[in-house]
Simulated assay, not measured.
Amino acid sequence: MLENLKIESPNELLELAIGYQKSQVLFSFVELEIPKTLHAKNQTAKQLAQTLSIDALAMERFLNACVIVGLLERENAIYKNTALAEYFLVKGNEFYLGGQIERYKNRSYPLWENLTEKLKSWKYGESNSETPEDEDQGADSMAEQHNLALLHGYALAKALDFSTYKRVLDLGGGTGAMSIGLSESNKNLKATVFDLPENVEKASEFITKSELQNRIETVGGDLTKDDLPDDFDVALMANLVSVFDEETNKNLLAKIYKKLPENGACIISGWILDEDRLSPEVSVLFCLEDISWNSPDVEKDFSVYKSWLEDAGFKRIEYKTYLEPTRLICAFK
C-alpha cells in the first residue's frame, strides 16, 4: 500500500502561511532605517551590526531575509539596496514610502488578526460608529500616505491630458498630494481640495511647503452633506468611493455631473477590481481591508462604476491602468 502513496511537497502552502513573516521583515527594515544607511555606503553584516547595536549573527540572518524578499542584494558579503529599496525606502527621498509602510504595520496589520470575526460581523451598507474614522481617514493617516498619493498625482498627469482644463476639484483630497502632483505637472492648472476641516488643515501645510498656495485652495466641509464648490471642470475621486455606500456615491456623482460644464470630466482613481474580480492582487486583498475597517462597501469592478456614472448622465467613459495596480475611470459630460 505504501508504494502507491503519493507524496506532495507542502512548500507552496508553507510559503503562503509565512507571508506575515515577510511583512515583518519589511517593517523592521524600514524601522531600522537600513536603506538610508546603505544609501550612504554599502556594508557587511558585521559593519551594520556594529552600527545598529545588533548581534552580528542575527544581523546576517536578517539581511539574508531582506535579500530573499527583494529588498537587498548581496555580493561578496557586501549588502546594498535593491532599486526598489533605493527609490522608495531611503528616508528623505521625494517618494519615500516609509510612512505608508508604518501605516501598514501600525494600523492595517493588527486588523487582520481577527479577519474571521470581521467577515462574520460585516454587513453591506453598515458602518460601525465605534470604529473611529480618523484611524483610517483622518489627518494623521493621510499624512502617512502623502508620498504615495503624490506619486499617483504625477502618474495621473502623465496618463491623461489636462491641457484643456482649468481647475480640478479634488474630492476627499486628504493632504492635497494628488492636486500637488497634477498642478506641478500642468502649470496652467489650478485645484481645490475639498475634505473634512481637520484634513484640509493638514493639506494647507503640504501645499504651502510645495509653494503652490496661489494655485491650490482648500475648502473644509462634508462632501456627503454640503454643496460642492463651484468653478471646476474636472472632479477627482481618488481612493474615495469604497468609503461610502452605493447610494451616497450615486448622489455624489449626480452632484458632480450637475456642476460640471459641458465636456467636463469626472475621474475615479483607486484599486479598482478587474472584471473577473480576481485581480489586481492588491485590490482583491484590499476588499478584506475594507471589511476589516468595517467600511460600508468594498472595492468594485469597472462595470459597476460605469453603471453608476451612466446613471448620473455621463456618456463617454474610459478605463485604464496608470500606475500598477491603480486603475482610473475617466467619464466625460
Rank of each mutant, 00 (worst) to 15 (best):
N4H: 11
N4K: 13
S9H: 10
P10D: 03
N11S: 14
L13C: 03
L13G: 05
L14H: 04
E15H: 13
Y20P: 04
S28Q: 13
T37N: 14
K41G: 00
K41W: 04
T44K: 02
A45D: 09
T51Q: 15
M59H: 03
F62R: 02
F62S: 08
F62E: 07
A65Y: 00
C66F: 04
I68A: 12
G70T: 04
G70Q: 07
L72M: 03
E75C: 01
A77K: 15
K80T: 12
K80S: 15
A83I: 14
A83D: 15
A85W: 05
A85D: 05
L89D: 11
N93A: 08
S108V: 15
Y109T: 12
W112T: 12
K118C: 01
S121W: 02
S121F: 00
W122S: 01
G125D: 03
T131R: 14
E135T: 12
E135V: 12
H146P: 07
H146Y: 07
G153K: 02
K158T: 02
L160N: 06
F162P: 01
L169A: 09
D170A: 01
D170T: 01
S179M: 08
G181F: 11
S183Y: 02
N188P: 03
T192Y: 09
V193N: 01
F194Y: 00
L196S: 10
L196F: 10
E205K: 15
I207M: 09
L212C: 03
Q213R: 02
I216D: 00
T218V: 13
G220H: 10
L223Q: 07
L223A: 00
V234W: 06
N239Q: 13
N239T: 06
F244L: 04
E247I: 14
T248D: 04
L252I: 02
L260E: 06
L260W: 00
P261F: 06
C266E: 04
L273W: 10
D274P: 07
E275D: 09
S279C: 02
V282I: 14
L285Y: 14
F286R: 04
C287K: 08
L288H: 09
I291Y: 10
W293C: 02
S295Y: 14
S303N: 10
S303Y: 04
E310I: 07
A312G: 03
A312H: 02
G313H: 11
F314A: 11
I317Q: 13
T321C: 07
R327P: 05
C330L: 06
A331L: 11
